[in-house]
Amino acid sequence: MITVSNLTFSYGEQNVLEDVSFRADAGELLCVLGPNGVGKSTLFRCILGLESKYRGTIVCAGEDTRKIPADKLARMIAYVPQSHSPSFNYSVFDMVLMGTTAHVGGFASPGKAQTELAEKALETVGIAHLAYRGYQRISGGERQLTLVARSLAQQARLIIMDEPTANLDYGNGLRVLKQVKDLAASGLAVIQSTHNPDHAFLFADRVLALKDGAVAAEGKPVGTVTEELIESLYGIKSRVREFDGQHRVYPLL
């Protein structure tokens, strides 16, 4: 689906990303781990075409993303930001419908086909009952699900999520991630950053760990997320243990 090769990005003199290479395939949820400021967001901005002054290549569906025009790129890669609060109170339905913009002409509004896509996306993430509620009035978890639905309506094959659970409570966070996991299982590629290594064990098919802008480890969660990795990334001693067939990180404070 997407192949990142030797990606190096710098702000001025300082390298934010250094020689990062990895790939993400359809049907796979790739979890990006790393401390604050390690360059996860920059990596995502490069993939999404928001930054173009990098060295290396990002190839999506066989094409260099830098050469793909914005509207076509939007039909390939969708972005799910952290839940936010826009200035105007759009209905949840309108918010999702905005995702279909890349599929309509510059002077046109979404039509019947796009309306159906938006309705289907709302049903897929299980918030069809909220369609005509105001986006500003629903809970943080519901907003995040709305943005996930929007990325589905965008019909991209790759979805990029920047810490989708950062502003959510325990339950909402897990519900959103469960939903995202199901989407990946249905054939989409999902790249998601997270602060919680347990999320890698719970939801990820593969893990990409970044340290100081470079890849520190990559692979299946079990075996990649180790006590050494946690200490090296976050400076926290921990035990990684299996319980009921599931691995978890138990921090030692």
């Binding site: 930001p81 936010h84 913009t101």
Partner: peptide, 23 residues
């Protein structure tokens, strides 16, 4: 009137609008 749908996307952040295919 012709581009009014796209004004909706300008009310979001620039990055968001761009990743949804808006110039």
């Amino acid at each position: 009137i012709l581009i009014r749908w796209r004004i909706n996307l300008l009310t979001l952040s620039d990055d968001e609008a761009k990743t949804m295919g808006v110039n």
